[in-house]
Amino acid sequence: MAAGGDHGSPDSYRSPLASRYASPEMCFVFSDRYKFRTWRQLWLWLAEAEQTLGLPITDEQIQEMKSNLENIDFKMAAEEEKRLRHDVMAHVHTFGHCCPKAAGIIHLGATSCYVGDNTDLIILRNALDLLLPKLARVISRLADFAKERASLPTLGFTHFQPAQLTTVGKRCCLWIQDLCMDLQNLKRVRDDLRFRGVKGTTGTQASFLQLFEGDDHKVEQLDKMVTEKAGFKRAFIITGQTYTRKVDIEVLSVLASLGASVHKICTDIRLLANLKEMEEPFEKQQIGSSAMPYKRNPMRSERCCSLARHLMTLVMDPLQTASVQWFERTLDDSANRRICLAEAFLTADTILNTLQNISEGLVVYPKVIERRIRQELPFMATENIIMAMVKAGGSRQDCHEKIRVLSQQAASVVKQEGGDNDLIERIQVDAYFSPIHSQLDHLLDPSSFTGRASQQVQRFLEEEVYPLLKPYESVMKVKAELCL
């Protein structure tokens, strides 16, 4: 049975990233139509530049190519590739079939990587351009969430054990800070992308030097003109047959890092959902379990974690691919890159769409948070109580021993009897502590235990987050809708 299948058929496997999760716009960027249309555009740009620099290419040939950029006979191309065992030459023939007058000058002087690699770089750039505003929107939604809850005390956790208090907004800023680093890295790697350009079979530009009869300047002009037509500021000066596969490492490393950030955020949300302090959106008709109707599973956060793990592992592909590119190139890269580049971007696209949807509907339960604080705060307040007693004339050592005994009794009630923490009640009825009984409410005010959390939130948002989001103001209103 021949390899390949009808990918629109229910009898043929289709990647869930495309069929179930990723956005239509990201799927289109990695589609065959987008790819092969870009090949034709690159052939047109090459012909236009070659004509401008004096090669015998007519206006009629150029116009014929322009008129057929979208006229792609995919069936013919597939048949040609089956016959020739070469995808680029299959599309040269297919393009030439609908451009008979231009057929002889299509791909003039070029090698397969002229269309293959340059198209990949265009796709990487455009895919990054799709991700950047999506990530900015996630940051914006979380920034709104953090600002609104900047002063809401909550129990902090280290080692997932109760620690000092923080605020809900401050905790959210930990998430935002990681995503801001990801946004900066995505922008950097996007701006650092260079075009492969017009380089020939081993990167020496020998074929173009021959076409222009040894004119170095025209060869350099050709490279520059096509690079500018493709919208790049610069091209690699040095290439082998391909652009260095280190570029793929750079791009997928940034995406993998984004995956790590999203995994951490969504894990926190899942843990908070278990504590009943916070939940992701839950639709009115949504079913959490087929057997347990009360369940409210954090399905979206779980999906993000599941896909983020996949995204983090994909960076190993370009690392290994770059390491086995012998001399000017081997074909070890080809099949692998067809999979890992598309999957990385479709996965990143999915987790950003999902995280935006989550961040637009996060639900906080202040009463649950308050109750958990009441359970733990008495123990945390013991040092403040000791200091207040010393100020009232008591002995630190005597007070410490009193607190120690009462704390152990209260802990026994919590752990052995399943009761509430009654340390404060014990202190309130103990005559030894009568000098500070009137101060206990103040000493137990949760806001006095959150330090500068709310001020940190305000400063972080104003100095770091809002300036970073400013270039994306025009796209901030787009909502994230999930079908599944």
Rank of each mutant, 00 (worst) to 15 (best):
P100Q: 11
P366E: 14
T313F: 09
L174Y: 08
L121P: 00
L211K: 02
Q205V: 07
G156Y: 00
L142Y: 08
S301T: 12
L211W: 06
P366M: 03
G109W: 00
L423Y: 08
S207I: 08
C113P: 05
L461C: 11
D216Q: 10
P100R: 10
K66Y: 12
V254C: 09
L222S: 01
Q320W: 09
A348K: 01
I385N: 04
A322D: 06
A381M: 10
K391N: 14
I72K: 03
V115E: 06
G5V: 10
F236A: 07
S253E: 07
N336K: 04
L377F: 04
L135P: 04
D32N: 15
Q164F: 07
L252G: 14
P435L: 08
D441I: 08
L209T: 13
D398A: 14
G394F: 11
A392N: 11
F74G: 14
L272H: 05
Q320I: 13
D332E: 01
R125G: 08
A381S: 07
R374H: 07
K479L: 05
C113E: 08
S261E: 04
S207L: 02
S359K: 08
R194T: 06
L186N: 07
N71E: 13
L352Q: 07
E60I: 10
H7R: 14
L131T: 09
M476I: 15
V390D: 03
E401I: 08
M89L: 03
M76I: 14
V168E: 04
L174M: 15
D32G: 13
H442C: 13
W175L: 04
Y114G: 03
K35N: 11
E64I: 07
L444A: 03
L443C: 07
S289Q: 00
S301I: 10
L142M: 14
F433D: 04
P100W: 08
M26W: 01
H7I: 13
H400L: 05
E279Q: 05
Y21E: 00
S261N: 01
K246F: 03
T321F: 07
A392C: 12
Y472G: 10
A344E: 03
L121E: 09
M316P: 05
I265C: 14
D11E: 10
A127G: 12
I385W: 04
K367Y: 07
L211N: 14
L209P: 01
G451Q: 04
R37M: 15
D215G: 08
A22I: 12
R171W: 00
P133M: 13
E220M: 13
G4I: 15
T354Y: 06
G203L: 01
P153R: 02
L211C: 11
G418C: 05
T154W: 08
G4R: 14
V251I: 09
K284P: 08
H159Q: 03
G240C: 06
T350A: 15
Y294C: 01
L155D: 04
C180P: 01
S9T: 14
N274C: 13
Q456Y: 03
V92W: 00
T202C: 11
L346V: 15
H91F: 06
A273T: 14
L444N: 02
K101S: 09
T347Y: 07
E401S: 12
A103H: 09
G169K: 03
A291V: 02
A143V: 07
D268V: 02
E279M: 07
P56I: 07
I176E: 06
G259E: 01
A381V: 12
L84A: 10
L307C: 15
D120G: 07
S257R: 06
F28N: 08
R20W: 00
L461A: 02
A77E: 08
V168F: 06
A206G: 15
H86Q: 07
D178E: 13
S140E: 15
D441H: 12
S207D: 01
L444R: 02
P298A: 14
M380W: 01
R270F: 03
